[in-house]
Simulated scan of single mutants.
Amino acid sequence: MSENNKIESFLEKAIFHSRWLLAPFYLALIGGIVVLFVKLIKEFSTVVNIVMGGDGNAVLSILSLVDITLIANLLVIVIFSGYENFISKLDVAHNSPDKPSWMGKVTYADLKLKLIGSIVAISAIDLLKAFVNIESTSHENLAWLIGIHMTFLVSGVLFALMDRLSGKH
């Protein structure tokens, strides 16, 4: 083996194994789900207090629960599909009846569409919260929320269109 081949082989192995540097990022996202769980418990206690005491808007608090859940779902999608697309296949649930049907089947193109779909849904929930609480939402804030939501929506449609035009789906 020549010196150039040894260097090339070492470089290729280093590049190949460097994908494992992404693992701490996915562990941090799992930590993010734990933080969201704590936030969910806090928000749920707010919902219970509102229902029992009558102070506040239960619909807004329930929409916050939906928002937190959508963000947690987004994190799970990113963790599973990112790990499988960039690090290694997950074999832990190979024959498990609990294995999600999409697990192991989400390509990078699918991941982009799922991400933008989740972001659009989260944005829609925030917009709905503003409409439910319209009397305390400024016109400027509402305009920003609508503009941002429309930007996400158009971006999602363009992502889907680009994938369709490229023949991936």
Score class of each variant (00 low, 15 high):
M1H: 13
E3C: 06
N5A: 15
N5Y: 12
K6I: 14
I7P: 07
E8S: 14
E8C: 07
E12Y: 10
K13H: 08
H17T: 08
H17D: 12
S18Y: 05
L22S: 07
A23Y: 10
A23V: 14
P24F: 02
P24S: 07
I30R: 03
G31K: 03
G31C: 05
G32L: 02
I33Q: 10
V35K: 11
V35Q: 09
L36Y: 10
F37I: 12
K39E: 13
L40N: 10
I41L: 04
S45V: 04
S45M: 06
T46G: 10
N49V: 00
N49S: 07
N49E: 06
V51F: 07
M52K: 12
M52L: 14
M52V: 11
G53Y: 06
G53C: 09
G54I: 02
D55Y: 11
N57P: 05
N57Q: 01
V59K: 09
V59M: 13
V59C: 09
L60Q: 11
S61N: 10
S61I: 02
S61E: 11
S64L: 06
L65Q: 02
I68C: 03
T69Q: 01
L70D: 00
I71E: 00
A72C: 10
N73Q: 08
N73A: 13
L74K: 01
L74A: 02
V76M: 06
I77F: 02
V78R: 00
I79R: 00
S81N: 02
G82I: 00
G82M: 00
Y83G: 01
E84K: 03
I87P: 07
S88E: 15
S88H: 15
S88V: 09
K89W: 04
K89M: 08
V92H: 09
V92F: 15
A93V: 04
N95Y: 11
P97F: 05
P97I: 06
P100Y: 00
P100T: 00
P100A: 00
S101N: 09
M103D: 03
K105G: 00
T107F: 03
D110L: 07
D110T: 09
L111E: 04
K112Q: 11
L113F: 05
K114E: 05
K114C: 03
I119A: 06
I119L: 15
I119E: 05
A121Q: 08
S123V: 06
A124W: 03
D126G: 13
L127V: 11
L128G: 08
A130M: 15
F131D: 11
V132E: 06
V132N: 13
N133R: 09
E135D: 11
T137S: 08
H139P: 06
A143Y: 11
I146Q: 03
I148L: 11
H149G: 05
H149I: 01
F152C: 08
L153V: 13
G156W: 04
G156Y: 05
L158T: 12
L158Y: 15
L158C: 10
F159G: 03
F159T: 09
L161R: 12
D163I: 13
R164F: 14
L165K: 07
L165I: 07
S166G: 06
K168W: 10
K168L: 14
K168S: 12
